[in-house]
Design a protein around this nucleic acid. Structure first.
Lengths: 191, 191
DNA sequence: CGGTTCATTCTAACGATGTTAGATTCTGTC
DNA sequence: GACAGAATCTAACATCGTTAGAATGAACCG
């Protein structure tokens, strides 16, 4: 009965994911969001500048979770393959958020911490510059979020094709891209 | 002074591209669109069911243009490389449309005509099934539209990074993907 | 030329959206 | 209990997509 907890940016973001997951992005308005928190729409603006900032927080949250899975010392292919699969898993768990992640780039600061780890992993076993390495990771990110958008873009409605279709598509896309990295930048050695 | 030409779906679509190119997707409303045609918003609904259908027409128009560039008898790599570059060129010419193409899949009927040509090209020089071939083309499409969204997503504002940045990104992404196709599905022969 | 019919566009309004200003209530401190 | 600041509310604004129904236009028929 007591208004549970007071409002803050984190609880608002939680409610955003809640709506995205259950009702889809089309149902996400400042009013429905406020209603879920037992509050009026205008109150949200005390904690958050506007709706665009909320969507940015969604994109950043997802990217942050992905970056958190990066562990040092793994071979580049395991690393990139892990990023692709983790990203897909997160977007499958939050289908409504796919429409956000595919459209909204994460803020640069989200990656700052992870970049050195990424570069270190990729530069052992590949022959490439930092710029190229980052472009490759970004490309993989774009590819996976784009596929997720095709699959979950009209959540919470089910995808047009059966899950196996998108599973195959994902495997083909990611494997092909990573094989390309190997072919283009791989050194002779394994790993 | 005479209202130039009467309204029809094609002229409306032309005005949509006009606004997308010059003002960006944020400026595209049924009212601004009608104003550009010297007409009131409600009149549009006599020719077009709703705004979503207009965006679908944009996505279909772009995909149609790409499919029209497909000429039989080219080697698979030229073909896919051509698709990637043509798609990018079109989206650079219509920066505001990138935000549409990246989000809205083209209608299946747009591809029907081109699919046999695609499959024929890809099956000479590659060892893969029809399903895999189509997934590869779709992946390339997703990749290029995703990159274009990152570059032109906030048109008509200029991109965040200089053009050379996105040029390099595009080259790396597409080359890597195509090298992956070669590595994964290529036969021994050249072409 | 007058009248009829159909196609096309208009006026006017509905409900919903993001957002803001200003009043109100709540919470904690002296 | 009075005060101060934080947090929320009420109310409204402009804009959006969309619809119903009235007004206009053009073409054809007598």
């Amino acid at each position: 009965m007591s208004p549970a907890a007071r409002l803050d940016a984190d609880s608002i973001l939680g409610a955003v994911f809640d709506i995205l997951d259950k009702e889809g992005i089309a149902a996400l308005s400042m009013r429905t969001l406020a209603a879920r928190l037992d509050v009026k729409a205008a109150s949200l603006y005390y904690h958050v500048p506007n709706k665009a900032a909320l969507l940015q927080m969604v994109a950043d949250r997802i990217a942050t979770q992905i970056m958190a899975t990066i562990t040092p010392g793994r071979a580049w292919r395991e690393l990139l393959d892990g990023i692709a699969h983790d990203l897909r898993d997160i977007l499958r768990a939050h289908p409504g958020a796919a429409a956000v992640a595919a459209v909204q780039n994460a803020s640069p600061h989200v990656f700052e911490e992870a970049v050195p780890l990424l570069l270190f992993s990729m530069q052992s076993g590949l022959r490439l510059t930092d710029d190229v390495a980052l472009h490759l990771v970004q490309s993989l990110y774009v590819l996976v979020t784009g596929l997720a958008l095709a699959e979950f873009g009209n959540a919470p409605e089910p995808p047009y094709a059966p899950a196996a279709y998108y599973d195959a598509w994902f495997d083909i896309a990611v494997s092909t891209f990573l094989d390309g990295v190997q072919a283009r930048y791989g050194t002779g050695d394994h790993d």
